[in-house]
Simulated assay, not measured.
Amino acid sequence: MEEHSFAPPPPGPPPLLSDEQLLCLAQQGWLCVNLPDSLTQSIQEVFRESPNFFDLPRQQKAEIYPSKQGTEFGYYPVENEKEYITFRCHVHGDAESESNTSMKPALSSSLAAAKTLESKIAQAWHEAGLFLFRILCDITRASDHDISAWNDILDGTLTLPRSESEVTYTLMRLFKYLPTTGFAGEHTDLGLLTLCVGDGEGLQVLDRYRSSRETGPIWVDPPIGTGKGTVIIGETLKLLSSGTVNTGMHRVVGNPKGRSSVVYALRHSNKHDIDFSLFGAEGSMTPLELWKTVQFGKVNINSVKEKRDEMRAKFNAEKLKKESAQKEDLVTTGQG
């Protein structure tokens, strides 16, 4: 039997969420929640340690955590908006990875802060993973599917991988938004579920209940604080559910005091094909096929402005080309 590195559902009688909460999550695409004590504590420790990294000179931050895979790994600054670091695996905090790391002597003191932060990230990653896993189990039970459907999909995602060779699509990000000008455009996430925890105002989620053509979009400010979190449904979970749940549209608006946040994005594993029959649908996809499907047509709102504009222009051109082809097909059909 093939071994899996996923953890069993967290202890405690199901469900974690009430029927009303599950319905709100499915319809709105987001849910404000009180976090378990252990998760609250681990995130508090991340918030305490993160200034020791963000206060370093920019060049040092970039050398400690070089940017890789675009914005998907390492330190990334966005001028006049924000800076953030994306964790995908141990880089300095794990003994095995440390032995493979070459670091300039001048960075030795700064590296100590990074190692401490990384150890806090590893604990928060695990706690957040178990929390979101339990919510996924609630969703699955409510849909009359077996929770074993997550065995392959979550394989290797609930603990911070030891090295780059074990990386999946799951990540944890620390954001530091600049006062007033720090923002993120409205968007949906790519993965299964995202947990957002902030120390200040700025995050807003779309209220689908009250929004309409007449009123336009109505945005809601979730509660803030390390014991409060916002769970957001991503594109992958919507796809697995055959569209029976909505994705959570959200954004970050400027805050005079600035904002820091911890974001854990639980995404599918890259180790196994995805069997849609486990969720009442048909067919299967490779992990990469699923990833490309949920990415299609999306603009990376965390990249620099020039790249965001470039992506929008590309997607708009593709959309116009597709619409033109569809009109041509209609005309051809009508001539028959």
Rank of each mutant, 00 (worst) to 15 (best):
T86D: 07
I135W: 00
G334V: 10
P77Q: 08
G93P: 14
Y84T: 10
K228I: 12
F87M: 13
K61Y: 07
E81H: 05
H90P: 09
E289Y: 01
F131W: 03
E45Q: 13
A7D: 15
A112Y: 11
Q69H: 10
P222Q: 04
E49S: 09
G225H: 00
L136V: 03
S242Q: 09
F133L: 12
P57V: 04
A7M: 15
P14R: 05
T244C: 04
F279P: 02
R208L: 04
K321Q: 12
S303M: 13
G198S: 14
S109E: 09
D329G: 05
T157Y: 00
P179A: 07
F54D: 00
R312E: 15
F276V: 15
M249R: 09
K238W: 02
D199P: 03
P36W: 02
Q44Y: 08
L266E: 02
N270M: 15
A317G: 10
T230I: 12
K292E: 05
F296H: 14
D138C: 02
P66Y: 07
E166S: 03
T181I: 12
I274H: 00
H187Y: 02
G182D: 10
I135H: 00
T230R: 07
L178E: 08
R308K: 08
P256M: 03
I43H: 02
L136H: 02
D19G: 14
Q123G: 09
P256F: 01
L206W: 07
G258F: 00
E282P: 08
L195G: 03
T215Y: 08
T293N: 05
E72S: 13
V263H: 01
P57I: 05
P11H: 01
